[in-house]
Simulated assay, not measured.
Amino acid sequence: MNLDTLKKKRKAEEAFEEYKYVYGIITTATDWYFILHSTEAIYYTSRTEYRVSLTEDALEDPTELCKSVKRILEVIVGLLKDRVSASDEPASKKRRVEEKIKIKIQK
């Protein structure tokens, strides 16, 4: 690897020139947190909203485990779909972020 070709890290202001918001996913495998970081603020899911139980009981009867994993994957797919459509005009991007923020505030 040639160190001369590595780009220096972008500052937050530079990153937000291209995108008005970014998503983050933090996980411990059992606890999942989803973050929306916009130029206005950082929004995140609650501590108990997305949890996967990996107890012996859950592994013996995988019904609840499957439901939890499916729920988390639905969120991830939604985030990915949103990023794919991020090439929309800036006005629609801003509207989408505002809608997501309203949903988070209502919860």
Rank of each mutant, 00 (worst) to 15 (best):
L3C: 04
A29Q: 12
S53H: 10
K67E: 10
A86C: 12
K67W: 07
L54Q: 01
E18N: 15
A29L: 11
V77Y: 00
T30K: 15
Y19W: 12
I26K: 12
G24W: 05
R95G: 01
Y21D: 01
Y50C: 02
T5R: 04
I105H: 10
L80M: 07
I103W: 06
E64V: 03
E60Y: 06
K70L: 13
I35A: 05
L6W: 09
E60A: 13
A41N: 10
E56C: 09
I42Q: 04
S85E: 14
E17A: 14
S92C: 15
V77R: 03
I105S: 03
A12L: 07
I35K: 01
A91C: 02
V22C: 11
K93I: 02
R83P: 04
I101Y: 03
E49S: 10
S53P: 11
Y50H: 11
I103F: 13
V84Y: 00
C66L: 14
K102C: 10
A91S: 04
L79H: 05
V52M: 02
K8G: 13
A91G: 03
L36M: 02
Y33L: 08
V77P: 00
P90N: 15
D4K: 07
A58G: 11
D88Y: 03
R47V: 12
R96Q: 05
T39Y: 02
Y23T: 13
K100F: 09
E17W: 12
I26W: 09
Y21C: 09
T55C: 05
Y23Q: 08
E49T: 07
E74D: 14
E74H: 07
E56M: 07
T30F: 15
L80H: 11
E17V: 12
E74N: 02
T55Y: 08
Q106W: 11
E13F: 07
A41T: 06
V69P: 05
M1V: 08
S53G: 06
A29D: 14
D31P: 04
V84M: 08
K20F: 12
Q106C: 15
K67D: 08
I26M: 09
Y44A: 12
K100D: 05
I42Y: 10
T63E: 15
D88A: 13
T63H: 14
T30A: 10
R71N: 10
I42F: 15
S46A: 12
K70Q: 14
I25A: 08
A86G: 07
S53L: 11
K104S: 13
T5C: 05
E98N: 13
G78Y: 03
E49W: 04
P62Y: 03
Y33N: 14
K9A: 14
E60F: 04
L80T: 13
W32L: 01
D31G: 03
L6T: 14
D31H: 09
E14I: 01
Y33F: 12
A91P: 00
E14L: 04
T27S: 14
D88G: 13
Y33V: 05
